[in-house]
Design a binder for these strands. Structure first.
Length: 321
DNA sequence: AAAACCTTCAACCGCTTCATA
DNA sequence: CTATGAAGCGGTTGAAGGTTT
C-alpha cells in the first residue's frame, strides 16, 4: 500500500480553478476566514480538497497579492536573499510583500537561474562556475578567437573600439564577455582570488577584443589547466552550499546594492554577486564549518580523492545539466 | 500554415514541521 | 513522551501560450 491520498474524499476535482470556484472560495473566506482548511471546501460548497483551497487562496485569491512582473529591485533582493537562505522560498517571500513563495520559486527557476549560469555564476552556491561543460565552451571559444586574425575581429566589432555599453554588442560578443567572466572566475580560484597570472584580466573582460589585439594569450594559462596539468588544491572549486550561513546575513542581503556608474538596463547582474560572497571571512565560514563536521568532511575529501585519483583521464569538475 | 520546440506558471505531490491531546 | 492530524514547504509536473523552424 502506498501513501493514502492527501484528501479523504476520493473524486475531488483537481486542476485549474474555474471563476465560479474562485468566487465561492473568496466569498466564504471573506465572510468566515479560513479556520480549518479541511472543512473549508465543504462549507464553501466546493468539490476540492482543503489543501487545494489553501493553495488557491494563498497563491492567487488573497487581496494583498501583488500582480505583474518583478522589478529589478525585487529580482536583486531575491538573488541576495537566496545567497543567504538558499531555496527557502517562503522565507524569501516574507521579505517581498505581495509576492508568494511559489511565484518567487518560479521566477528563480525560469529566469534568474539562467541569467546567473550565463554569467558564469553557480546559482546554487553563488560562486563562480567551474563545471566542465562551461569550461569546454570557453576553451572552444578561445581557440576560435585565437584562430581568427585580429583584424577580422576588429572589423567585425565596433564594440571593440567603444568599450562596453557605448554600442550594443552583438550576441557573439556578449557570449565572449560572459566566457571571459568565467575565465576570470576560474583564475581567481586558482590563484586564491589574486589576479597575478593575468594582471590585466579585468581589461580583457571589459574589452576582450582589444585585449586580444594587444596580445594577451589566454590559452597560455588556461589550456594546461583544462588539460589537467595544472595542480590545484583550492577547495573553492567545490565550495559548499551556503544555505546554512548565519541568519544574520539576511540583513546584509537586504542592503541596497550600490549602483555602478556604468551599469544600465540588464547590467544589473554585472554587480549582483552578494558582497559576502567575495568577503573572505564569510566565504570561508562554510569551510570552517565543513571541516568541523566529520561526516561532511569525509565526503568532501573522498570527492577530492576521486577527482585526483585518475591522472590520465580529463580533470573532472562539477558537471551539471 | 503547421509542426516542433520552448517558456511560463498554476497546481499537485509528498515530505517535514508544528500544535495539540 | 508519544501519537495524530493539520499546515507549511519545496520539488515537480503538465497545460497553455509563445516562438522558431
Amino acid at each position: 500500500m502506498g501513501r493514502p491520498p492527501c484528501c479523504d474524499e476520493i473524486g475531488v476535482k483537481k486542476g485549474p480553478w474555474s471563476p465560479e470556484e474562485d468566487e465561492k472560495l473568496l466569498d466564504y473566506i471573506t465572510k468566515h476566514g479560513s479556520g480549518n482548511w479541511k472543512t473549508v471546501p465543504k462549507h464553501a460548497g466546493l468539490n476540492r480538497c482543503g489543501k487545494s483551497c489553501r493553495l488557491r487562496w494563498t497563491n492567487y485569491l488573497r487581496s494583498d497579492i501583488k500582480r505583474g512582473s518583478f522589478t529589478q529591485e525585487e529580482e536583486q533582493l531575491i538573488i541576495n536573499l537566496h545567497s543567504v537562505l538558499g531555496n527557502k522560498w517562503s522565507k524569501i517571500a516574507t521579505h517581498l510583500p505581495g509576492r508568494t513563495d511559489n511565484e518567487i520559486k518560479n521566477l528563480w527557476n525560469t529566469q534568474i537561474r539562467k541569467k546567473l549560469l550565463q554569467m558564469g555564476i553557480d546559482p546554487e552556491t553563488h560562486s563562480p562556475r567551474t563545471d566542465l561543460k562551461h569550461l569546454m565552451n570557453l576553451s572552444q571559444l578561445l581557440a576560435i578567437s585565437n584562430n581568427n586574425n585580429n583584424n577580422n575581429l576588429m572589423h567585425m566589432s565596433p564594440w571593440a573600439h567603444s568599450g562596453l555599453g557605448l554600442q550594443q554588442p552583438d550576441v557573439a560578443h556578449q557570449l565572449l564577455a560572459q566566457q571571459m567572466q568565467v575565465l576570470n572566475n576560474v583564475l581567481q580560484l586558482i590563484n586564491g582570488n589574486s589576479l597575478s597570472l593575468l594582471p590585466n584580466i579585468q581589461s580583457l573582460i571589459n574589452n576582450p577584443l582589444d585585449a586580444f589585439v594587444n596580445g594577451i594569450n589566454t590559452n597560455t594559462s588556461l589550456e594546461p589547466f583544462l588539460r589537467g596539468e595544472e595542480t590545484y588544491g583550492n577547495p573553492s572549486l567545490v565550495l559548499p552550499a551556503q544555505s546554512d550561513v548565519s541568519k544574520s546575513l539576511e540583513t546584509e542581503a537586504k542592503a541596497p546594492i550600490p549602483s555602478s556608474s556604468n551599469s544600465s538596463g540588464s547590467d544589473m547582474f554585472n554587480n549582483q554577486i552578494p558582497s559576502h560572497s567575495h568577503n573572505s571571512s564569510s566565504t570561508f565560514d562554510p569551510w570552517e564549518k565543513l571541516l568541523e563536521d566529520d561526516d561532511a568532511s569525509d565526503s568532501f575529501w573522498k570527492e577530492i580523492l576521486d577527482l585526483t585519483s585518475d591522472s590520465t583521464s580529463p580533470r573532472r569538475f562539477l558537471v551539471e545539466d
